[in-house]
């Protein structure tokens, strides 16, 4: 607490009131675009196209959501995204743990640690860029497969470093006692370190799941047909590119009336729902997890 002795004068009450009002305003600004989109998605299409919908639905109806349910491409790309999150998230998780544990050992326990660390540092600092990666994935014959979406980013180096630092800050006595009792490295990793690292594991899982759910660019360059698009790529191709087309046209307003604003809004809302659903559950861990992982001895 910043001020221990509190005197409730009129002035301090006033400044506290102003402060709360400012916080309310900041929160409203953070939520406004999302809220506006949700309102659009439940509105009547004509009202939306005419620009009458602000922060409450006009002509409330579920028509857009009904349309989504029968749009095969949308549902399919939603499934592709779920698949990539499950497969990609699992691969990220396994590799993060498998790399963080040996790298958290001291130089005495594992002398080659520093060689591996230099390798990681090197890959973090330098990359060949998007075109060599594109050619690599193409020559491996991975275009149009789920592997193109999960393997190039299989090792989330940032997460490895986060978890490694967390492991390193667990008490030294822990591994000493374990090794005394004859526990091997696999047992130590799976049965001792993992159960003690839930906040950090929740954090890195949240980051990798959100990363997979949100990425559109790999889907755009590695997937050559619409059926294989993950959800974000699908939305990018249909919604974002359409809006930009509006801008180029001198008949911007006419085009906007034709485009199905409420349907697009509903698609955006559906694509946000999974993130908004898991986020509150993991939130209490991740602040904790980020801070623990970033502190070094």
């Amino acid at each position: 607490m910043s001020v221990l002795v509190r005197n409730k004068t009129f002035g301090s009450r006033l400044s506290e009131g102003v402060l709360l009002a400012v916080m309310l305003l900041i929160s409203a600004v953070s939520l406004a675009p999302v809220w506006h989109t949700v309102s659009l998605s439940f509105s009547d299409n004509a009202a939306a196209a005419g620009g009458f919908v602000k922060f409450w639905p006009r002509g409330f109806n579920l028509e857009s959501y009904r349309k989504i349910m029968v749009e095969p491409h949308f549902l399919h790309s939603f499934l592709v995204s779920v698949e990539r999150v499950l497969l990609g998230g699992a691969i990220n998780f396994a590799l993060t743990v498998l790399m963080a544990y040996p790298l958290s050992r001291s130089g005495k326990e594992f002398p080659l640690r520093s060689a591996y660390m230099w390798f990681l540092l090197f890959t973090m600092l330098f990359s060949g860029g998007v075109i060599p990666l594109y050619i690599t994935v193409k020559s491996l014959g991975m275009f149009n497969t789920l592997w193109a979406l999960v393997l190039p980013g299989a090792v989330p180096v940032f997460n490895v470093v986060l978890l490694m630092n967390f492991f390193r800050n667990l008490p030294k006595e822990l591994s000493e006692a374990g090794y005394m009792d004859g526990a091997g490295p696999w047992f130590m990793m799976l049965k001792v370190f993992l159960p003690l690292s839930l906040p950090s594991l929740a954090t890195v899982t949240l980051f990798s799941v959100v990363g997979h759910w949100n990425s559109f660019f790999d889907g755009m360059i590695f997937m050559r047909s619409v059926e294989n698009y993950p959800l974000q790529t699908y939305i990018q191709q249909l919604v974002v590119q359409l809006n930009i087309a509006d801008l180029d046209s001198t008949q911007a307003e006419l085009l906007e009336k034709i485009s199905d604003k409420t349907l697009n809004a509903a698609k955006i809302v559906v694509s946000m729902v999974p993130i908004l659903a898991i986020y509150p559950f993991l939130q209490k861990y991740f602040i904790h997890g980020i801070m623990l992982g970033s502190v070094k001895e």
Partner: peptide, 28 residues
């Protein structure tokens, strides 16, 4: 509560936010 709310946009993709923003900034 304020913390929970202001972290939300960080977790939404630019694809989604760009389409929301370009809609909000369009002519009407």
């Amino acid at each position: 509560w304020v913390q929970t709310i202001v972290y939300v946009p960080h977790f939404l993709s630019w694809v989604i936010l760009a389409s929301v923003i370009s809609d909000m900034l369009s002519l009407n």
